[in-house]
Nucleic acid binder design. Structure first.
Lengths: 222, 222
DNA sequence: ACCTGAACACCGTTCAAGT
DNA sequence: ACCTGAACACCGTTCAAGT
């Protein structure tokens, strides 16, 4: 009794809030019902079942990340700006992004950014299959980086720690390298550096060549 | 009655087989007990609870992937070979790798390969913080690539398909690029191309510079 | 069209009791 | 030291019944 009509959107909002604050494991139908002040079974009328409720949350997240605006003057700068803004957006929704990933939709989420990258690849002088290869390499790079980065942050305390492992290794090799690998990572800087290095590598191998549709036939292939 | 003594290893073996064949969701304590022919509660004596059982499986997987042997003559070739063999190993254990990822241990799993990469970076003439940056860029690249790739394979049928999305976009832009992006990806070739491009980009910016420990102070930084 | 409680078939886990 | 069944507190889901 005594509550206004339940709506599908209200269910989704409350569910999203639950996931954002306590993670997807906290999203049980009974808890959600309690949060909404309704019977558990009412939820089923609006969203079907738990699985399609999660699907709806995921597809919301995908559309939320659909707006990408490149900034900067050179193609490299604009590509880097796309990469950075995408990374930021992903990092603001860790749980939801993990759910998108579990459902195999990470790439789908990345489509708008893919278009922006294709535009910049064209502007940088890449054409045809060459340009496609560059777009995909960047796409894999950025999405993969964020996944790995998230992963690192959730990692439990390591034993032995990376630090110790690299202390042993140091003997007979590059001591400064070992020290650098034992130090914590500036992931923002590494991200930008990696994207830049990849862009440079891709653009450097771009001259000549018409691109015949066969991925893997460029200057970097065997 | 009537079965030989249960051992922790037997529990882990059976659990691993269940995960490999039917995925982690199929690993329930009751089903595992049925598979082993024991009471559910016996499992608890050997492995504690479900969570630590999964932890044990994950840590097994991590050690399984600990053997990396670079092949080839040039540093670039050897780095590419490390990347490829790691990719193959990860792809042979999709469910277990996903569990490693969920537990935030992907990077931990990658440590042996990290050592190999450090060796090759040194051989390629990189030193100190520069070398560390290259190692980490490669590490993020390879791990991220495999995560994205797995993700794509699990993705449900897309609607609208990537193909259709790129058909619309084609007007006024690079038609061949659009066609190339609409075509399926040769992920093996793209992987090798990406790694090569990144290696080239990293080595190209490596001359001079002593490396002072500050990640992000190289030629690619702002 | 929307909401409800009761009931079902599952979970993981605990615990006292056996040998 | 190892194994057991009973019991507990949870799940997601179905369904007949209400308004």
């Amino acid at each position: 009794m005594a509550r206004s009509a339940l709506s599908r959107d209200e269910v989704l909002d409350t569910a999203a809030a639950l996931v954002r604050e306590h993670g997807p494991a906290a999203l049980t139908m009974r808890r959600l019902a309690a949060e909404l002040g309704t019977a558990v079974t009412s939820i089923y009328w609006h969203v079907g079942n738990r699985e399609s409720l999660l699907d709806a949350l995921v597809s919301r997240t995908v559309t939320d990340l659909g707006t990408i605006r490149p900034r900067g003057t050179t193609p490299t700068e604009r590509i880097v700006s796309v990469a950075r803004s995408l990374r930021r957006a992903l990092r603001e929704r860790p749980h939801l992004v993990a759910m998108v990933h579990e459902r195999g939709l990470t790439e789908r989420m990345f489509l708008p950014a893919q278009r922006a990258l294709a535009h910049e690849a064209h502007a940088a002088g890449l054409r045809g299959a060459h340009a496609a290869r560059a777009v995909r390499a960047l796409q894999f790079q950025v999405v993969g980086y964020v996944l790995v980065e998230r992963n690192r942050e959730r990692a439990p305390a390591q034993s032995p720690a990376e630090e110790e492992l690299w202390r042993e290794e140091a003997a007979g090799s590059d001591a400064e390298l070992a020290r650098a690998l034992a130090a914590p990572i500036d992931t923002e800087a590494l991200f930008v550096d990696s994207v830049r290095a990849l862009v440079d590598g891709l653009l450097a191998g771009a001259s000549g060549d018409t691109g015949d549709g066969a991925v893997g036939r460029g200057p970097y292939s065997l």
